[in-house]
Amino acid sequence: MATGGRRGAAAAPLLVAVAALLLGAAGHLYPGEVCPGMDIRNNLTRLHELENCSVIEGHLQILLMFKTRPEDFRDLSFPKLIMITDYLLLFRVYGLESLKDLFPNLTVIRGSRLFFNYALVIFEMVHLKELGLYNLMNITRGSVRIEKNNELCYLATIDWSRILDSVEDNYIVLNKDDNEECGDICPGTAKGKTNCPATVINGQFVERCWTHSHCQKVCPTICKSHGCTAEGLCCHSECLGNCSQPDDPTKCVACRNFYLDGRCVETCPPPYYHFQDWRCVNFSFCQDLHHKCKNSRRQGCHQYVIHNNKCIPECPSGYTMNSSNLLCTPCLGPCPKVCHLLEGEKTIDSVTSAQELRGCTVINGSLIINIRGGNNLAAELEANLGLIEEISGYLKIRRSYALVSLSFFRKLRLIRGETLEIGNYSFYALDNQNLRQLWDWSKHNLTITQGKLFFHYNPKLCLSEIHKMEEVSGTKGRQERNDIALKTNGDQASCENELLKFSYIRTSFDKI
Rank of each mutant, 00 (worst) to 15 (best):
H28L: 09
H28N: 09
Y30S: 13
P31K: 07
G32N: 05
G37Q: 10
M38Y: 09
R41Q: 01
R41G: 04
R41V: 00
N42W: 01
N42V: 00
N42I: 00
N43E: 05
L44K: 05
L44S: 10
T45C: 13
T45M: 09
E49L: 11
E49A: 09
N52R: 14
S54G: 03
V55A: 06
I56Q: 02
E57T: 08
E57F: 02
H59R: 14
H59W: 05
I62L: 06
I62A: 01
L63H: 01
L63T: 01
L63M: 03
L64K: 00
P70I: 13
F73G: 02
D75E: 10
S77A: 10
F78E: 00
F78M: 02
K80P: 01
L81K: 00
M83N: 00
I84E: 00
T85Q: 13
Y87N: 01
L88S: 02
F91C: 00
G95T: 01
E97V: 14
L99C: 06
F103T: 00
N105T: 06
T107S: 12
R110D: 00
L114M: 15
L114G: 00
F115A: 02
N117W: 03
N117M: 04
Y118N: 01
Y118F: 02
V126G: 00
H127A: 06
H127R: 05
L128G: 01
L128E: 00
L128F: 10
K129Y: 03
K129M: 06
L131K: 00
L131W: 00
Y134F: 14
N135T: 05
L136K: 00
N138H: 10
I139T: 02
S143D: 06
V144E: 00
R145D: 04
R145V: 02
K148Q: 02
K148W: 04
N150T: 09
E151F: 05
E151G: 07
Y154K: 05
T157P: 10
D159V: 01
L164A: 08
D165F: 11
S166F: 12
S166M: 07
E168G: 05
D169F: 15
N170I: 12
L174K: 15
D177S: 04
G183S: 14
I185M: 06
G188C: 04
G188S: 05
T189I: 12
A190Q: 09
K191G: 14
K191Y: 08
N195L: 15
N195K: 13
N195I: 14
C196G: 09
P197I: 14
P197F: 08
A198Y: 04
A198D: 14
T199I: 10
T199R: 07
V200Q: 07
I201S: 06
G203Y: 07
E207W: 15
C209G: 08
C209P: 03
C209S: 02
S213V: 07
C215N: 06
C215L: 08
C215R: 09
Q216T: 05
V218M: 08
C219R: 01
C223R: 00
S225M: 11
H226P: 04
G227P: 06
C228N: 04
L233R: 14
C234W: 00
H236N: 11
H236Q: 02
H236L: 02
E238F: 07
G241T: 06
S244R: 09
Q245V: 08
Q245A: 04
D248T: 03
T250R: 12
T250P: 03
K251F: 08
C255M: 01
C255H: 01
C255K: 04
N257I: 01
F258R: 04
F258G: 13
Y259V: 07
C264M: 01
C264R: 01
C264W: 10
P270H: 10
Y273L: 08
F275V: 00
Q276R: 13
Q276T: 12
D277M: 07
W278I: 00
V281S: 00
F285K: 02
Q287V: 05
Q287I: 10
L289I: 15
H290Y: 11
H290F: 12
H290G: 07
H291M: 14
K294W: 10
R298Y: 09
R298P: 10
Q299G: 04
Q299N: 14
Q299W: 06
Q299H: 05
G300N: 11
H302M: 15
Y304M: 07
V305I: 05
I306R: 05
H307P: 01
H307G: 04
N309T: 10
K310N: 13
E314C: 06
S317Q: 07
Y319P: 00
T320R: 11
M321R: 11
N322A: 06
S323C: 08
S323Y: 07
S324T: 09
N325Q: 11
L326V: 14
L327G: 04
C328A: 07
P330M: 04
L332W: 13
G333R: 15
P334R: 15
C335W: 09
P336Y: 12
P336I: 10
